[in-house]
Design a protein around this nucleic acid. Structure first.
Length: 577
DNA sequence: ATTGTTGTCG
C-alpha cells in the first residue's frame, strides 16, 4: 500500500529539491528498494543536463545498502543512460567501466547507452569488450542491444561486422534496418545501401532521411529532391537535410525556397541557412534571418559569430559575442564559440585577448581542444608572440594542415623564412599535406626575406602537391620579384597567369615600380588597376609620385589634375598610355 | 532504450 503511494508520488518528482525530500523520507522509513526508482525518476525528468542531479543520483546509488543486484543494475543503467542522452560520451564509457569493475552486471539500458557512446566517440576498443560482455551476460538476445551493435559497427565503418550483427537479430525492427542502412552509407557502398533501403519492410521517416541525406551529401540534388517529394511523411529533419544539400551546392536561392516553404522550422533549419549564407559570403542575408529568429540558442549565436568572423567583420563578431554573454545566463560560450571569437581578435591583431581566453577556459571548465588552440596559435603568431605560439603548438594533440599553416602563415607575415622552412619540412616529413594557405605563408616568408630563388622553387613545387597557385600566390611572387627590382620578370609572370589578374596583383607591381622609380611598368600597372577598381585615386597618386621622382613634372601634374576633375576612367586611361 | 538533420581553427 505504502509502496504504491510512494511510487505514485515519485512519478511527480520533477525537481532535485523534491527528490531530496522524498529521499529523506525513504531513508527514514527504510524503503531502500524504492531508492532505485527515485534515481530513475529524477534522471528521467531532468530534461537539460545537470551536474548536480547526476552527482545526487550517484551518491544515492553508492549509498544503497540493502539493494538487490537487480536494483543496482537498474540504477546504474539509468545513470549510464542519463550521461549518454546528454552527449557526455566519454563519461558514459568511464561510468560504465566503473559499474563493471564494481561487479554489477549490466542492464540492457546500460549496454545500449554505452554502445552508442562508443560509436559517437569512435571507441572501437571499448566497444569490442562491451560486445563480449553482452555475449557473456546473455543480453545479445535483446533487439535493442543487437541493434546497438549494428549501430556501433556501422558508425565505425566495420560494415561486415554490422551485417553479421544484423543477421543475428531474429525480430528485426525498423531501427535495426536503419542502422544497417547507415552502415552501408558510411562505408560508401551506395548500391548496397540502396538495395537495403528498398528491402526495408516498413520504412520510417529515418529510413527516408538517411537515403535522402546520402544523395544530398553527394550533391545529387535531383534524386534527393524527388525522394523527398515521394516520402509519405516528412519530419523537420527531412526538410533540413534537403536545405543542407542545397547549401552544400551553394544553391542558396533554392535552399531559401525550401526554407520558406517549410511548415515547422526548428533551430537546425535556421542554423543551416545562416551557415549557408556564411559560406557564400551573404552576410546581410544571414543577418536578416538572425534578426527574425524568435528564440536564439547557443548554436545560432555560434553560427552568426562565425559568419562575421569568416567574412572579415571581426568587430561585428565581437559585438555579437558580448551580446551573447549579456543576453541570458543559460547561454554559455564553449570552445566552439571561442575559436570564432579568437579568430576575430586575430584579424584585429589584438593579442591581449589570448590570455583572457586561456583563463576563461580554465575557470569555466571549457575543453581546450586542438581547434581552439589552433586559433590561439594564429592569434599569437600574427601578433608576434612567438614564444606563446610555439608553446601551444607543441601542446597540440594532433598537428594537422591547419595548425601547421597557421604557424607558417605567421612566419610569413613576420618575415621568418628560416622558421617557415623548418616547419614546412617537418610537416612534409610527417606526411601532412600542405594546401594553398600553407604556400601563401611560405611564399610570403621568402618574399619578405628577399629569397627570390627559394621563392621560385617553392612556387614551382606547388604542382607536386596538385595545387594550382591562386591570384594571391601570383601576387606574392610579383611582390617578391618587384622588390628585388625584377619588374620585367614580374610583368611576364602576371601575363602568364591562367586567371585574370586582380587589382591586388597589379597594385603590387605598381608599388614595386614606385620603389624603383620605373615609369614603364608603373604606367602599365596603373592602367590595369584603374580598369579594375571603382575608386582609382590611390593608384593615380602613386603613378603621379613616380612621375615626380623621375622629374616628369608635367605628367605628374596631368595625372593629379585628372584625379581632381574626376574625369571618366576611360578618358584617363587613354590619355597617358 | 537503438537510427537521421545544425555550429568551430589557417
Amino acid at each position: 500500500m505504502l509502496d504504491s503511494k510512494l511510487r505514485f508520488f515519485l512519478q511527480k518528482c520533477l525537481v532535485l529539491e523534491q527528490a531530496k525530500q522524498v529521499h529523506a523520507q525513504l531513508v527514514v522509513n527504510r524503503h531502500n528498494h524504492l531508492e532505485s526508482i527515485l534515481i530513475h525518476q529524477t534522471l528521467h525528468f531532468t530534461k537539460d543536463f545537470s551536474r548536480n542531479v547526476f552527482n545526487y543520483a550517484k551518491r544515492i546509488l553508492q549509498g544503497l545498502q540493502i539493494s538487490t543486484r537487480k536494483d543496482s543494475s537498474f540504477s546504474w543503467g539509468c545513470l549510464v543512460r542519463f550521461l549518454s542522452q546528454h552527449r557526455k560520451f566519454k563519461e558514459t564509457v568511464s561510468l560504465y567501466m566503473e559499474m563493471h569493475s564494481s561487479g554489477i552486471s549490466p542492464s540492457s539500458h546500460a549496454i545500449t547507452s554505452v554502445l552508442r557512446a562508443c560509436g559517437k566517440t569512435e571507441n572501437m576498443i571499448d566497444g569490442n569488450s562491451i560486445h563480449a560482455q553482452a555475449l557473456k551476460t546473455g543480453l545479445c538476445g535483446c533487439v535493442y542491444v543487437q541493434t546497438g551493435l549494428v549501430g556501433l559497427y556501422s558508425r565505425l565503418g566495420y560494415i561486415d561486422m554490422a551485417k553479421k550483427a544484423f543477421d543475428d537479430i531474429s525480430e528485426k525492427n525498423t531501427v535495426s534496418w536503419n542502422s544497417l542502412l547507415h552502415g552501408y552509407l558510411e562505408s560508401g557502398d551506395f548500391d548496397e545501401a540502396r538495395r537495403v533501403f528498398d528491402e526495408i519492410p516498413e520504412k520510417d521517416v529515418v529510413s527516408w532521411n538517411l537515403i535522402i541525406s546520402s544523395y544530398a551529401k553527394k550533391g545529387d540534388m535531383s534524386n534527393a529532391c524527388s525522394l523527398f517529394q515521394a516520402m509519405p511523411l516528412k519530419s523537420s529533419a527531412s526538410w533540413n537535410i534537403l536545405i543542407g544539400g542545397y547549401v552544400n551546392c551553394r544553391e542558396m536561392k533554392l535552399a531559401r525556397t525550401y526554407f520558406d516553404a517549410m511548415p515547422q522550422k526548428n533551430s537546425v533549419s535556421w542554423i543551416t541557412m545562416v551557415s549557408g549564407y556564411t559560406k557564400s559570403g551573404e552576410v546581410e542575408s544571414a543577418e536578416e534571418l538572425f534578426r527574425q529568429m524568435f528564440k536564439r540558442d547557443k548554436l545560432v549565436y555560434d553560427a552568426m559569430i562565425a559568419c562575421y568572423a569568416q567574412n572579415g567583420k571581426p568587430k561585428d563578431a565581437l559585438k555579437l559575442f558580448s551580446q551573447m554573454l549579456e543576453s541570458s545566463s543559460d547561454i554559455q560560450p564553449d570552445e566552439i564559440t571561442l575559436s570564432s571569437v579568437v579568430s576575430a581578435y586575430s584579424q584585429l591583431g589584438d593579442t591581449s585577448f589570448g590570455s583572457w581566453v586561456e583563463s576563461y577556459v580554465t575557470e569555466h571548465g571549457i575543453k581546450f581542444d586542438d581547434l581552439l588552440v589552433t586559433s590561439l596559435i594564429d592569434l599569437y603568431m600574427k601578433g608576434g608572440d612567438f614564444d606563446k605560439a610555439f608553446k601551444l603548438f607543441s601542446k597540440l594533440h594532433k598537428k594537422d594542415t591547419v595548425s601547421y599553416s597557421a604557424m607558417i602563415m605567421g612566419c610569413g607575415i613576420n618575415g621568418k623564412a628560416m622558421e617557415a622552412n623548418t616547419l614546412f619540412k617537418e610537416m612534409v616529413e610527417k606526411k601532412i599535406l600542405p594546401n594553398l594557405v600553407t604556400f601563401t605563408g611560405l611564399l610570403s616568408a621568402y618574399s619578405h626575406s628577399g629569397l627570390v630563388q627559394e621563392g621560385y622553387k617553392c612556387f614551382n613545387s606547388m604542382k607536386d602537391y596538385n595545387l594550382e597557385p591562386s591570384a594571391d600566390h601570383y601576387g606574392i611572387m610579383v611582390d617578391m620579384l618587384g622588390r628585388a627590382g625584377r619588374l620585367e620578370e614580374a610583368y611576364e609572370l602576371i601575363k602568364s597567369m591562367p586567371m585574370q589578374a586582380n587589382a591586388g596583383v597589379w597594385g603590387t607591381l605598381l608599388l614595386a615600380s614606385g620603389l624603383h622609380n620605373n615609369v614603364e611598368f608603373g604606367e602599365i600597372a596603373c592602367r590595369h588597376c584603374v580598369e579594375l577598381e571603382t575608386d582609382p585615386s590611390g593608384y593615380l597618386s602613386r603613378l603621379a609620385n613616380i612621375y615626380t621622382s623621375v622629374g616628369r613634372w608635367d605628367d605628374a601634374r596631368k595625372v593629379r589634375e585628372a584625379m581632381e576633375e574626376k574625369k571618366l576612367r576611360k578618358t584617363l586611361g587613354c590619355s597617358w598610355v
